[in-house]
Design a protein around this nucleic acid. Structure first.
Lengths: 227, 227
DNA sequence: ACCTGAACACCGTTCAAGT
DNA sequence: ACCTGAACACCGTTCAAGT
């Protein structure tokens, strides 16, 4: 690994205070409710805690209720069903991911480096929050289109990438093809790598996920340069 | 879309008699057992049938038993637990996929085209057998390393790709970098695209999965050319 | 308005008992 | 040797009842 590459990785990966989305209760809801004071928030926090502690298993509604210290039926006052809870969890995941990607991009000094940063940030997020990543992209949350807030959070994460692609085109880093298609290509390659790593389908052979992500994204950009 | 591209797609996608793995009972087992004559095979067939009919839901052990016309406890004579059944299902999926990829590659006239064919074949397989694809790569089958036959089938599918990468390097289509890394890049990009499509995360905007796969793979190869 | 307890229909899994 | 029926501990979900 060259020293310039090492430096790039270092800059891209410097962690901020915390990547975690802020968990302060929204101003729309009263500070204290009946027994719990915003049980909705408590349930989402419990879900996040379970996902972080237990990389493998399912996220059960009863388990979430148990961790929040309420009865199994209590969540139904705040979420229509398990799908709705999962959608809210996934939504927060997308917000955290957008934040992580924006941070990774912010330290870059030019559009090409920004795109590399996004790729590394994406894979870093996935490996650091494996279970959360699975809820966001997996299939226990069956019909994502039913949850507009989730769709919005997801498309906001996508536009971080899309905007960077546009920047790259304007700067002459990539050719002026359909930007959506270039974004799909970039998304596909980091998403595929993230999935293969998270599901332990790939033998890393000593390389860190970030290094792999960097190599792979760099190669992709090479293929998109003006010719 | 250029006509040469159309021709390439046509050649790559010409379907053989059937992509399905052969389901004849293995010679190791007697042709008739107690009640069912190879209930193991009947269960795997039932599982495949359920996966094909029901793209969304979980694959339940009881549901498989029901479809095979046996009691809920019967599968335990043939599979240690649900994980073992899923592993066998995934294993057959990998065999079918290897076959599909080999077929897609066989019609190609040079290494570069063969690599494109693999990419298209991969994404085609995923979209044509969504539920099966999810069992192969998803997380309801938790620890794939516990099942050596599955690991072998998966790594055989991977070597179809790896061999083609080696061929491309020898033919001067791609540069002589670490072939494993090039294979990872190729795998990542088609796997990512397949996942995004299968989980409905991507708006196809009228394009077929195969066309997208072709464009994306072509772009990747451009990035790997000798410089 | 918000939560509990008990119930229902489902799972995966086990085990004695049947042929 | 292979399968069944009943049981167990778990789910998600509903609903009357409690505060």
């Amino acid at each position: 690994m060259s020293t310039s590459m090492r430096n790039l990785l270092k800059r891209i990966m410097a962690t901020p205070g915390s990547n975690r989305a802020k968990r302060s209760s929204s101003p729309k809801r009263p500070i204290r409710g009946y027994h719990h004071g915003n049980l909705r928030r408590a349930l989402l926090d419990a879900a996040a805690k379970i996902l972080e502690a237990n990389d493998a298993g399912e996220l059960g509604l009863r388990a979430v209720a148990r961790m929040a210290g309420v009865s199994q039926a209590a969540p139904y006052r705040h979420f229509a069903d398990k799908q709705a809870l999962l959608a809210a969890v996934a939504e927060e995941g997308f917000r955290t991911m957008s934040e992580a990607m924006r941070h990774a991009a912010a330290s870059a000094r030019d559009p090409a480096e920004r795109l590399l940063g996004l790729g590394v940030g994406y894979v870093e997020f996935a490996t650091a929050h494996r279970a959360h990543f699975r809820v966001m992209f997996g299939r226990e949350l069956i019909d994502k289109s039913q949850f507009p807030d989730l769709a919005k959070a997801a498309s906001e994460a996508f536009s971080v990438l899309y905007d960077t692609i546009l920047e790259c085109q304007r700067a002459g880093v990539t050719r002026r093809d359909d930007p959506a298609e270039q974004a799909f290509a970039a998304w596909s390659i980091v998403h595929g790598l993230a999935n293969l790593i998270v599901n332990e389908q790939l033998s890393l052979a000593g390389k860190s996920p970030a290094t792999l992500a960097l190599d792979i994204t760099r190669n992709l950009i090479d293929g998109m340069r003006p010719r």
